[in-house]
């Protein structure tokens, strides 16, 4: 039924053809179905050209890719990068801050604490592709197939969570960036003056109340710095993502208007991977060159924008606690 309809449509598409005679006398036939838009460059006035350029750039930002990514826009890649980065930051911050609180406030100095510190520092030096392999093995094949077996059994053998997805990609990157957050948060916790803690304890607050109500707010700007660093590192990462959820073309977005809005199991597109795909995997890399450069620019701009947003938040925090230690 559907196939017949598609065939119908295809034959309709081929039915009307545009015949053009070029200036050198050649005749060209273009099926109208292949025409996306047309314009007459020589007939355009200057403001129209400018408008055209702006529109082209807007289309580049807002449209889906066409012709195996070599034409059209990069919107899904921008959106995928954004969602993945935000999700990663949301996951990494609480975990990193809790770890820092434990290390700085609760752990007794000794072999165990030293061991954990060394492990954290080593984690920061592990190549990112190793995190990708770990994410694939642990999150995708381990946790993912477990989740599938328990919650999505009716869909098996088609995996739901047992394959790469934006959640596993975010978790993998969160794991990769957690040392940055831990180190920054620990430093900022340590820089909260002893007098402030004693003041709180002398008011009859417990240790946890002191940490939650006084130490954490005072350390918040420093923790934000760690958050920014982690975000910057995570947003530009490509290698581990290729293993845990990034695809060349994703027909759906990880965040949309259909319940439950955020679809953590969906594969997604990523600007970094898009650059790689355009520049090195497309059939005509020379023709894709402008796309590669433009995509690179957009990726850098996105990272800068995300960082600026976080820096603004930090500035607000600092103003709120003006005169603090930062």
């Amino acid at each position: 039924m559907l196939a017949r309809r598609a065939k119908d449509l295809r034959s309709q598409e081929a039915a009307s053809v545009l015949h053009i005679r070029l200036a050198d006398g050649r005749a060209v036939r273009i099926p109208t179905g292949k025409i996306i838009r047309y314009y007459q460059p020589n007939a355009l006035s200057a403001p129209e050209r400018l408008g055209m350029a702006v529109m082209n750039f807007w289309r580049f930002l807002s449209e889906d890719p066409r012709e195996a990514n070599t034409e059209g826009g990069i919107f899904p890649a921008i959106f995928g990068t954004f969602v993945m980065t935000v999700l990663m930051s949301v996951l990494v911050t609480p975990f990193g801050v809790l770890a820092a609180i434990y290390l700085r406030e609760y752990a007794k100095p000794g072999l165990w604490l030293r061991g954990v510190r060394i492990a954290v520092n080593n984690l920061a030096g592990v190549p990112s592709i190793v995190f990708g392999v770990f994410g694939l093995g642990f999150f995708v094949y381990g946790v993912g197939s477990f989740v599938d077996r328990w919650f999505f059994g009716e869909a098996l053998p088609t995996p739901t969570f047992g394959t790469g997805g934006v959640l596993w990609a975010s978790l993998t990157l969160a794991l990769m960036t957690v040392p940055v957050v831990i180190v920054a948060a620990e430093e900022s916790l340590a820089s909260v003056p002893k007098g402030t803690r004693e003041g709180s304890l002398a008011c009859g607050a417990s240790k946890w109340q002191t940490i939650r109500r006084v130490v954490l707010p005072a350390a918040a700007p420093g923790i934000m710095t760690g958050f920014i660093l982690a975000m910057a590192r995570g947003a530009g990462e490509v290698a581990p993502l290729m293993l845990v959820g990034v695809v060349k073309y994703a027909p759906t977005l990880p965040l949309d208007g259909i319940f439950p809005f955020l679809h953590p199991e969906r594969k997604f597109m990523h600007l970094g991977f898009h650059i790689y795909d355009l520049g090195f995997q497309s059939p005509d890399s020379e023709a894709a060159k402008p796309m590669v450069f433009a995509t690179t620019l957009v990726l850098i701009a996105l990272v800068v924008l995300l960082n600026l947003a976080a820096i603004l938040v930090r500035k607000n925090l600092r103003r709120k606690y003006a005169g603090g230690t930062f």
């Binding site: 004693e198 002398a202 008011c203 707010p217 606690y321 603090g324």
Partner: peptide
């Protein structure tokens, strides 16, 4: 904690909370 509630303390260096 209840002991400390019965005794207010003022420190050498004023230590207001970031609030």
């Amino acid at each position: 904690i209840s002991l400390r509630r019965r005794m207010g303390m003022v420190f050498q260096k004023s230590n207001p909370f970031p609030k």
